[in-house]
Every structure is written in structure tokens, then in C-alpha cells.
């Protein structure tokens, strides 16, 4: 799988261009085609929700954006840089794109504070004192003041997930990816995580969310994409999307989940 031959050197990105541009992306795992010609754009500051039945390729799609999963065909530009360009500095890409996972994936042998501080210190080689100050204020931002020295095992799911968000933010990303981040949480703690995400979105962070929280998606999203079996079946702004879904599959899905 080659990058497009003779692709022009990336022009510097300007805010009037899409910050993420996905074009005709295909991805297969063996014989299973998980993404079949997916295209969409995300503009800076936009909040995009991806919904769809499980197994439809949502996680795969979102993972392609920070090159956790390499694509087979098509192109993904993040700030005009081809994500799958072998010459691309992965470190640069991953600084720009933060990701939060369903299972939090905190480092269990490190405290909440250390989890947040680790990447800026070890990867970006930033000054420890500055990083610590920033990490503390990030933990305060996600309402975890007082939990700095707790280990992940001592925190609730919702608290862990907020540490995970702070950990991603510590890299000062331009884009945040959220892959069903509330799916593993108790209903009581879902809200505290959603509040954090909402605040981020309100501050202008570009967010791409995979979610099953339809009410939340409706409130927060600028645009909703419904995927099924590797294709985007239908999309639109939330009011329009929820009010008059045209496709049979979308209606069936919404009917089930609402």
C-alpha cells in the first residue's frame, strides 16, 4: 500500500481548510472489508459524532485518523498532512491528535498525575516543573483535584476516564478522538464524563466522537454521521438527522436505540 505517487508536498494548513479530510478510505482485515469508501471532512472547532451499529467500523475509522490503524486505500489528511505517508513524523501527528478509549487504558502503575505527565516529559522532553503545573491544572479542569496521587485502580470508571482525557490534553492536541468513551461506565458516572467533553467542545476543541449517547450527540454535535457495514449511510446536522432520517437502516437503528 503506497502513498499516492507524486503527491505534492503538503501545503501549510490554513484554518479555512478542513482540519481533517478523509477521502475514499478503504480498509480490510483479511477478507473482511471494514471500511468501504468512506469520505468526510471535519473543520476546526467542529464536533462530529459517528454513530452506527456495533461492528460497522466506527472504531477502525477513528483509529485510522491517528494512524493506529493503517489504511489500504484513499487518503486521510490531518492539517494537510497525509497520515499514511511513510515519511510522516508519527510523533507530530500524535501530538496533534489525542485519543480517548472506551477502556480508559490508563497506566496502572502510575498515579493520576504521573499518567498525565508522562508523555510530555518522556516524549516531548518538556520541563518537568512546567508539565507538572499543567498536569495539575488539567486534573482540576476535569474536576479531579485531590486525586492527583491516586492510582487508576483506586478511581471509579468515570474518574479514570477523566484522567485519560486530561492525559490526552497534556499533549496539547488540536483534535480529540473519543471512541465510545462512556460505553464502559456506570450510568451515574456517564454524565460527569460527558460534561467534561462538552466543556472541551465549547472551548473550541475539534472533536470526533463515536458514541451511543444519542441525546448527547444531538445536543453537542455539529454534524452526525451514521455508518453501517463500512459505509456512511446518512449524515447531516443533528436536527435534520434525527427529525427526518431517510434511509431504512438509519431509521431502524434510531428506532432501536431511542
Amino acid at each position: 500500500m503506497k502513498a499516492p505517487i507524486g503527491a505534492p508536498a503538503a501545503a501549510p494548513w490554513t484554518p479555512d481548510q478542513p482540519i481533517v479530510s478523509i477521502r475514499s478510505v478503504r480498509k480490510s482485515f483479511g477478507a473482511l472489508e471494514v471500511l468501504k469508501d468512506v469520505s468526510f471532512d471535519v473543520r476546526k472547532g467542529e464536533v462530529v459524532c459517528i454513530i452506527g451499529p456495533s461492528g460497522s467500523g466506527k472504531s477502525t475509522l477513528i483509529r485510522c485518523i491517528n494512524a493506529l490503524v493503517p489504511i489500504d486505500q484513499g487518503s486521510i489528511l490531518v492539517e494537510n498532512q497525509e497520515v499514511n505517508d511513510p515519511a510522516l513524523d508519527k510523533l507530530m501527528l500524535r501530538r496533534k491528535v489525542g485519543m480517548v478509549f472506551q477502556q480508559y487504558n490508563l497506566f496502572p502503575h502510575k498515579t493520576a498525575l504521573q499518567n498525565v505527565m508522562m508523555a510530555p516529559i518522556q516524549v516531548l522532553k518538556q520541563n518537568k516543573a512546567e508539565v507538572e503545573e499543567r498536569a495539575r491544572s488539567l486534573l482540576a479542569k476535569v474536576r479531579l483535584t485531590g486525586k492527583e496521587n491516586s492510582y487508576p485502580g483506586e478511581l471509579s470508571g468515570g474518574q479514570q476516564q477523566r484522567v485519560a482525557i486530561a492525559r490526552s490534553l497534556a499533549m496539547r492536541p488540536d483534535i480529540m478522538l473519543f471512541d465510545e468513551v462512556t460505553a464502559a461506565l456506570d450510568p451515574e458516572t456517564v454524565k460527569e464524563v460527558l460534561v467534561t467533553i462538552r466543556e472541551l467542545a465549547e472551548e473550541g476543541m475539534t472533536c470526533i466522537l463515536v458514541t451511543h449517547e444519542m441525546k448527547f450527540a444531538r445536543e453537542i454535535a455539529d454534524h452526525i454521521y451514521f455508518t453501517d457495514r463500512g459505509v456512511i449511510v446518512e449524515h447531516g446536522p443533528p436536527e435534520e438527522f434525527f427529525a427526518n432520517a431517510k434511509d431504512e437502516r438509519t431509521r431502524a437503528f434510531l428506532g432501536q436505540i431511542l
Binding site: 508519527k90 490508563l106 497506566f107 502503575h109 508522562m118 518522556q122
Partner: peptide, 30 residues
Amino acid sequence: IPNGQWEAAESLAFSRNKTLWLIILPQCVK
């Protein structure tokens, strides 16, 4: 060690070696 540890580290721009030495192996000791 769950695969999620590798993925989280990767998404935070850790190299493979750094992931192994700073994140995976310390958890293996126990």
C-alpha cells in the same frame, strides 16, 4: 498486558521502545 496499554502509549506518541521500557515492563515485574 492488555493491548490497550500499547495503543494508549502509541496514541500518546511513545515509541515502541519507550512503551516497552516505561509502560509494559514495569507492569510485568509484579
